[in-house]
């Protein structure tokens, strides 16, 4: 796997802090118009005409969207807006009825999820998917790409993969320290708290050495004490030169860390722009924030979201246990 080796050394260089460049990339968004589907100076993801229907329901219908490289983009929208489905479509976990999209200029149509991940577009899940009966360290190690020991023929002969395993373990240790999970490395991942699971999932995604990290509701189910540190971690991804796209309901977080916001409603993109501009956009207020503009979510909203989330949890659990 020489290609991966090269990539790996590149990434070590990239992971040095680059605050200066991140200011630059942010500045690059200055000239972008605040319209749905606005062209970006340096897009990492470009999607066209993505349509996904479930029976009679059109869950996603995105005409055109571009995600700028090197910045943090938030994808927001009311429940059922199609955000998670859009995530699934982009990452190959679901396939659209129509449309084409690319990552760093490479067409992804019809590409299976694992190949998308190998290209450097790695996602996390709304309901964290830690590997419960594996230790935290094993969870991290599995993230490393290009492992020779993952091939059946080499697996039985430990000397063939031991060196690489050691290097991966060191890299995993560095990341665990960064995410303050190093003391838990030998615990089963299933014993971690909700927030720690989110951290582990993010750290594990970084083991893949992605260019684009896609976080599906990174704050859901995280206790307030951990929220600040999670925010810091997301920001640090940008400092490391990665692009971040995340789905989130927590408006404070969106305002705090995102450089650009894309708003979806009923499967369509209805607005785009920097956080402040978007949140004062009339279309957004109408479609999403309504009377609660600029306020914390009301109790009713939270209840509605909770109920929907529970319903979804129930459904997914039912599915995943026999699938």
């Amino acid at each position: 796997m020489p290609a991966d080796m090269i990539k790996s050394s590149d990434m070590t260089a990239v992971s040095a802090p680059r605050t200066d460049k991140s200011v630059d990339v942010r500045a690059a968004l200055k000239g972008v118009e605040h319209q749905p589907g606005a062209p970006k100076p340096d897009p990492i993801v470009v999607a066209d005409g993505i349509v996904r229907r479930f029976g009679g329901l059109t869950a996603v219908d995105v005409e055109h969207v571009e995600i700028q490289r090197g910045v943090i983009t938030a994808l927001i929208g009311p429940n059922g807006a199609g955000k998670t489905t859009f995530f699934n479509l982009l990452t190959g976990f679901d396939s659209p009825d129509a449309g084409a999209w690319s990552f760093s200029g490479k067409g992804l149509k019809g590409m299976p999820a694992y190949k998308v991940a190998r290209l450097g577009m790695v996602r996390t899940f709304q309901l964290t998917k830690v590997l419960a009966r594996l230790t935290v360290m094993e969870n991290m190690r599995i993230g490393a790409t290009g492992q020779s020991g993952e091939s059946l023929w080499q697996a039985m002969f430990a000397p063939l993969w031991r060196g690489q395993e050691k290097r991966n373990t060191e890299r995993a240790m560095d990341l665990l320290r960064r995410f303050k999970l190093d003391t838990k490395k030998d615990d089963f991942a299933g014993s971690l708290s909700g927030g720690q699971r989110k951290l582990l999932e993010m750290a594990r995604a970084l083991m893949v050495e992605p260019e684009l990290v896609m976080l599906d509701e990174p704050m859901a189910g995280v206790n307030p004490a951990l929220k600040q540190s999670l925010l810091g971690h997301v920001k640090s991804l940008r400092e490391d030169g990665m692009t971040v796209l995340f789905v989130e309901h927590d408006m404070d977080m969106v305002r705090d860390i995102s450089d650009w916001v894309i708003v979806m409603a009923q499967g369509k993109i209805i607005a785009e722009g920097p956080p402040d501009a978007v949140m004062s956009d009339q279309r957004v207020i109408d479609a999403y924030l309504g009377a609660h503009h600029d306020a914390e979510l009301s109790t009713e909203d939270e209840e509605a979201i909770l109920a929907a989330a529970e319903a979804e949890t129930g459904a997914t659990e039912g599915k995943s246990s026999h699938g």
Binding site: Y114, A117, R118, L131
Partner: peptide, 12 residues
């Protein structure tokens, strides 16, 4: 444990 997680990490 979770095949979607494994898929998201680039394994076939």
């Amino acid at each position: 444990e979770d095949e979607d997680a494994v898929r998201s990490l680039g394994k076939n």
